[in-house]
Design a protein around this nucleic acid. Structure first.
Lengths: 153, 153
DNA sequence: AACGTAAATGATATGTTGTAACATCTCTAT
DNA sequence: ATAGAGATGTTACAACATATCATTTACGTT
């Protein structure tokens, strides 16, 4: 069976349940993100869209669609890289705790890891003591993956 | 006495000691960063430069100067925001442990906080288990400061 | 089924950020 | 004084993002 279709259908139901519409274009964009499971920039998506669907899509549309998908919690925007990635909880149900993104600054690979809740709590305490508030407990951490580390030398 | 001049002079000695030159333009840019003590984008600096010095500076020059200052460890580049900030250890001598930057996503205020070494170690362990390596233990954390939090409502 | 409205998308222009490539200037050592 | 390296200037352009207005589509009402 086709896993991606299942995911998309699930997402569609989710949208419908609170009165928003996962239109064809939105499905197509989401589908690209789910399939690649890598972080893609808006312009990456524009190129991929043409390749996969044989028709152009304006930049404006992609940005609007990404905003929509983000508002629906179907994709995350990685601010560190200005890239977008399918939200992990649409591809797998069980809860992982607090997800954190490791982004390889060389090859843009993205890995989602779980960090102890206590670690996050400690971090959060330090932040609040400083008079700031975490926008989300989801950190984007600038890393180098082992592959790039070994080949770079 | 003028604190900023002292800082700049100190930085200049530092450069001289290993054969690099803190030229007038570089001093001017560094000086802007030290004075504002906020995170500024390259184009923020271009505007500020005109305002403060009454002469234009090309974008290219600012980027080159920022690269230089970063290599000299006089400024940090905040990758999350694509902004630059004067390195704290040129304005204050004593070591703080592992510095972390909190960046207000509304007003761009930057606060440097200290997080328990143990917290960082735990984070680092999780990262290494995932086959990644922290580029630097210096995190850039996306926050909202209390000022913006209260006024936004 | 036809219509009106709101939402979604398209199209165009332009703003913003960053860099490539080459020219010119300016120190510094000889 | 002059050559060579390093620093800066200039121009053009690539990549990323949004503003604005036009057009199309979906959906409830009649």
């Amino acid at each position: 069976m086709n896993n991606i279709d299942t995911i998309i259908e699930h997402a569609e139901q989710n949208c419908k349940s609170h009165g928003s519409r996962l239109t064809t274009k939105r499905k197509q964009v989401l589908s690209l993100l789910v399939q690649t499971s890598k972080a893609l920039s808006a312009y990456d998506l524009i190129d991929l869209f043409v390749k996969e669907n044989g028709e152009k899509i304006p930049a404006m549309s992609v940005y609007r669609i990404l905003d929509f998908l983000e508002a629906e919690h179907l994709v995350h925007k990685l601010k560190l890289a200005n890239k977008y990635i399918a939200c992990s909880h649409i591809t797998c149900k069980h809860e992982h705790g607090v997800p954190q993104f490791l982004i390889c600054s060389v090859c843009n690979a993205v890995k989602e890891i779980t960090v102890n809740k206590s670690t996050i709590n400690e971090l959060n305490q330090s932040v609040e003591q400083a008079g700031f508030k975490l926008v989300s407990p989801q950190l984007e951490i600038n890393c180098i993956c082992n592959d790039c580390l070994t080949t770079a030398v």
